Simulated assay, not measured.
Amino acid sequence: MREVADLEHAAGLHCLDGYKHYPERVKRTKRALLKFLVDTRDRGKSIVAYGAPAKGNTLLNYCGVRDDLVDYTVDRSPHKQGLFLPGTHLPVYAPDRIRNTRPDYILILPWNLRDEIINDLSYIREWDGKFVVPIPELSVFD
């Protein structure tokens, strides 16, 4: 718990002034994600998402992301597979679909699990696939 408090303090979230620029940071995140998705699609590249967490779905809906920018998402939970993400209507499949479709980019929606997911899907490097993490700043990883 102390670690979280230290992170909040470092981010300036321990006082009201720390929240003044929050709305603009959220808008910058949205613009960065949309710019990346549009530019990537314009280059003819494929993008899929990993995970179906509420926070990731909130981000996709806030940004207006639909299947013109992301093909589908995968999730390990069999309870989510075969369904669609609320609002975005992206289909949710089992993770093995990634190996079959070989996307150019995987957008990691549970960004707090980034390292675990990158490790689990390290095989995407076989076809030069890359990982994208949208939060706190948009980052692309090999």
Rank of each mutant, 00 (worst) to 15 (best):
F36D: 00
F36Y: 05
L37I: 07
L37G: 06
L37F: 06
V38Y: 03
D39C: 06
D39M: 08
R41P: 03
D42N: 12
G44F: 01
K45S: 09
K45R: 15
I47W: 02
V48Q: 13
A49E: 03
Y50K: 01
A52S: 14
P53S: 00
A54E: 14
A54Y: 09
K55D: 14
G56Q: 04
T58W: 08
L59Y: 01
N61D: 02
Y62Q: 10
Y62M: 11
C63K: 00
D67Y: 12
D68N: 15
L69T: 05
V70F: 03
D71M: 10
T73K: 06
V74L: 05
D75H: 00
S77C: 05
P78H: 13
H79M: 13
K80A: 02
G82M: 11
G82P: 01
G82K: 10
L83S: 12
L83D: 11
F84N: 14
L85H: 06
L85Y: 01
L85R: 02
P86V: 11
T88W: 08
L90P: 01
L90C: 03
V92L: 03
Y93T: 01
A94L: 00
P95K: 06
D96E: 15
R97K: 14
R97I: 14
I98A: 09
R99D: 09
N100E: 15
R102C: 15
R102N: 07
P103K: 00
P103L: 09
D104Q: 06
D104S: 13
D104P: 03
D104L: 03
Y105F: 15
Y105K: 10
I106A: 00
L107K: 01
I108S: 03
L109V: 01
W111T: 14
W111Y: 13
N112K: 12
N112S: 15
R114E: 15
I117K: 02
I117D: 05
N119L: 11
N119M: 13
D120Y: 08
D120G: 05
L121I: 13
L121S: 04
L121P: 00
L121E: 12
S122Q: 14
S122P: 05
Y123T: 10
Y123C: 01
Y123S: 04
I124E: 11
R125Y: 13
R125Q: 10
R125E: 15
